[in-house]
Structures are given as C-alpha cells and as structure tokens.
Design a protein around this nucleic acid. Structure first.
Lengths: 255, 255
DNA sequence: CGTCTGCTTGATTCCCGTCAACACCCGTGG
DNA sequence: CCACGGGTGTTGACGGGAATCAAGCAGACG
C-alpha cells in the first residue's frame, strides 16, 4: 500500500476489499497512461466505440450537441472514474468527452472488461455497482434540470461537486474547493444561458451562500444551501458492503 | 422455442444467442410471477432495496418527488425490462415505481444477480449491456428535458416510445399505438404543466403531425416529427454482437 | 498599450406556469 | 329519464423566470 497507489484501485477498494489478484487485474487496465492537455477531445459523438478509459488525473466532461447548436453536458468526471461505460452495448459513441484541465488517462479495449467478467467475480460486482452509481448520478441531474429553477440548479450542482470531491480526494468534506469551469460550461451543464449563470451566482453571493472568485468556490452556509436546493446526499453515498456481507473477507490483506 | 417463451429470455436473446444453461438460469429469475393492478406501488423512495424485478406484462414508471410537491418521472418500463438495477449499489430505493396498467412482475433478490455473475459469463455481459442501455435512455431523456421546448419534448418522447414498442413488441415499426398515459403523467414525464401538455398536443395535432384520442396515438408524418424533435434513433438501437464477435457461437440451438 | 476572452449588467421578448372557468366523460342514484 | 359529482382534458388571461441581444468592463497576455 505505497503512497502512489493507483486511484482506480482506491476507487474500487471503496466498495470492497480487493485481493492481490484483483488488484493486479485492475492495474492491467492502467498500463499505458497518457498525458492529455486542457481542451483535448478524447472522442466525439459518432466515433467508433471500442475502448473505455480510466481517469487518473484532471477533470473531464461528456457532452452532446443539439441540432440548434446548443450543447448539453452529461456528466463531469473526476480522478478514479471510468469513462465510456455508457457505450458498452453500442458500436458508436453517443456523447463526446473533453478535458477541462490537463490530466492523465488510460485507454483499454472493451474486451478487457469481458476478461474481467471471466476472471473476477468481485471486480465484476464492483463494476456493476459503479455503473449503477453512474446511472443514479445522471438521474439526479435529470431531476435537477427538469424541475428546479436556476438558483436551485446551481446550488445543487455545487453541493454535489463538494460532496464528490470530499469522497474521492481529501476524504474530508471541504466547503472550499477549486472548480475549473467557465460560466459557459456551467451554462451547458445546467441548461441555462451563460448570462443567467452569472446573474444566479451573483444572487447566491448576495444571499451570503456562496463565494466565488476565479476558479475557486467556497460554500458558506451548507445547511441553507441544502434546504434551498432540496439536496439529499444519499444518492452519492453508496456502498456495496451490505450486499457482500455473505462473502468471506480477505485475510491476506497487506497492512 | 414455444409460443409462451419468457419475455426476459426474448429480451436477452436480442443481445446474443443463449445456451440452454443460460436460459434456465434466466428463467429462475421469473419463478414467482405476481399480478399487480393499475396504480400499485411496487416500492417507494426510501424503501429498503434488496430486490430486482423483471417485468412481464403491463406498463410501469419510476419517479421522484421534490420538496415543492412536484414529481418527475425517470423512466417508463415496458415488458421485458428489468427494474431496480439503479439501486444495486444502494441500500435504499432512490425512486418509486408504480404501475400504469395491470401487469405481471417477478421479484428476485440482489443475491441472484451475484449468482448470475458467477455462473454465466454471457449473461453477465448482457446484463452489463442492459445497464448501459438504460443509462443511455436516461441520458437522452436528460438532454430532452434540459434543452428542448415543449413541442420537441413531446414529439421526441412519442418517437422514442414508438421505436421501443416496435423493438420489444410487434417487431414492426408501428406509428399507431396504445399509450395509457394521462396528461398529468405526460406533464410529470416531460417537465411541463398538464395545461401545457394539452396545448402542445393540440399544436402538434393542428400541424398534422399527431392524432390522439383517448389512450391511442398515431404519428402521421414520422420524418417531419423526427426533424422537429431532432430525433436520432441510434441511441435505441444497441447490439452487442460486434463485441462478442470473437466468441464461439452456440451450435446446439433449437430450431 | 492594445487586443482577446470571459464576465457583468440592462432592456426586451417569449415560453411556459399558474389560476380559473368551463366542457366532457362516465358512473351513481334518485 | 334526468340530476349530480368527480376525474380529466380544454381554453383564456395573466405573470414570471430565463433567453436573447447588446453594450460595457476587467483581467491576461503579448
């Protein structure tokens, strides 16, 4: 358990203790890390889909263009996430993926996932849990976009990011964090116009709820924000351990 | 391959030929079919989540309530669908599920899915494909809700249902079908008010695109509708066969 | 110091929500 | 046979939240 432990192993370990065998299978997915710069397009809608991608460093997002020229972001990806699961059953990409910041990614072919299914029951189950969690995230985003006003949308999004960052990064809940998104990205993410994003940020600022400068945000009154946004973090706090409770635990774990 | 073949077997077979072994594993999930009436709640948000449910007959939908009392439908389920995959990694239901029409369902515990992972590589892969397809459906709905106006939303939804029905039911594309949804359900599904749903239906009717009476809809000019709604059916037409192309085919298939 | 990109602010417009009245269907019961 | 009532769909008037257009502003960088 050295300091440079892979973040995909860390991500998977969140669900269940991994055996050395499982860890080595996972590490095989991260064999050829690739540096990618801000703005790089990992793939576009319509590209052939035969690879997944694990995300080691940086921020990325998936998006769809509409006929009228507007764009909708689907999902934001943080380190440890797996990208492209959506297209497992498809031959074409259904959404593009772009980097928000410089980062590092590892591509691996769909076939490797099938190998995982064959070789590790635990990893298969965790993969399924990850896919199910992704679906839950998108579902919550759907509700957010369909039913809430601009203030609530923005507040909800900030709370979600705050929660996700504290789960995957520091481990401690931080109400102050780096958020490298332009207001145009906010707009495409929340289904608003850039103009209105600006206005909404100002409104939240005036209400004393949010402070933002440059690409750094701090949330001042978490409770008030949660009330305002109708935010319930349960959808982010998943855990498979109850499900696995019948399984034998691993005993040869490195201390 | 008798006339009463299980619809879950039919659903799975859409992705890949199943061996007799796989079929019997699947059929075990449909052991105790249960009749459920219109309006029955299969479960509610917050209920303990330890079962899935296969859907044999009828229509159902999943939904979320918001603090302000409004409701958002997440997904519509048709026969052959599997319900509850979303909560695989969670201990609580994150959305309720209700029947639109009388139907028949089979519950089975999460553990059975784990058994499937252990026992059948092919079924595992197909399950993963189904989960990925569900994610794609929700994603498209998200884009629909976030970025399109009422006319486009409605048109898009009708096209999606038409396509899904023709894939799972008759097999032939029908532009005239039974659609047992009240305008209130339409509203909760599309993020509109019931009043505006009515207006939008009228508008589409006047434009000669849609005819509707009672719970029956017919689409008149599919091409025009698709143009209007920016509808691209590729997101509904998935197929894993290319992925499996390296696998041996099954030869002992019953003719 | 000028230019470019991204943010802010104001004026106007429009889509859709809300409220309210009304029509309709259908079953009940007098 | 008609009166009644609830649930559902329709139509109109009105208001509000967010889009759009346009101009001004502030950093970043050469």
């Amino acid at each position: 358990m050295d300091g440079k432990e892979s973040c995909i192993v860390r991500h998977f370990s969140y669900y269940y203790e991994l055996s050395e065998h499982d860890k080595s299978l996972l590490l095989a997915l991260e064999q050829s890390p690739m540096a990618v710069e801000t703005g790089t397009t990992l793939w576009e809608e319509g590209d052939e889909a035969k690879e997944f991608c694990t995300f080691k460093k940086g921020w990325a997002y998936s998006y769809r263009f509409l006929e009228n020229g507007s764009r909708q972001l689907i999902e934001l990806y943080l380190p440890g996430d797996i990208i492209g699961l959506r297209e497992f059953a498809f031959s074409q990409r259904l959404a593009g993926v772009k980097m928000v910041e410089d980062g590092e990614v590892c591509f691996f072919p769909h076939q490797h996932l099938l190998d995982l299914f064959r070789r590790s029951f635990v990893l298969t189950s965790i993969l399924f849990a990850i896919a199910s969690r992704q679906q839950v995230l998108i579902t919550e985003r759907l509700v957010n976009l369909a039913r809430r006003n601009a203030r609530q949308k923005l507040a909800h999004f900030l709370l979600e990011i705050s929660q996700r960052l504290s789960q995957t990064q520091t481990g401690s809940l931080s109400d102050s964090f780096h958020l490298p998104l332009s207001q145009e990205l906010f707009a495409d993410l929340l289904g608003l116009s850039p103009v209105h994003v600006s206005r909404t940020f100002s409104a939240l600022h005036e209400a004393g709820l949010v402070h933002r400068e440059r690409h750094h945000v701090t949330l001042h009154d978490l409770q008030a924000l949660k009330r305002e946004a109708d935010f319930d973090e349960r959808y982010l706090i998943d855990n498979m351990r109850p499900l696995f409770s019948g399984l034998p635990r691993i005993s040869d774990k490195a201390s």
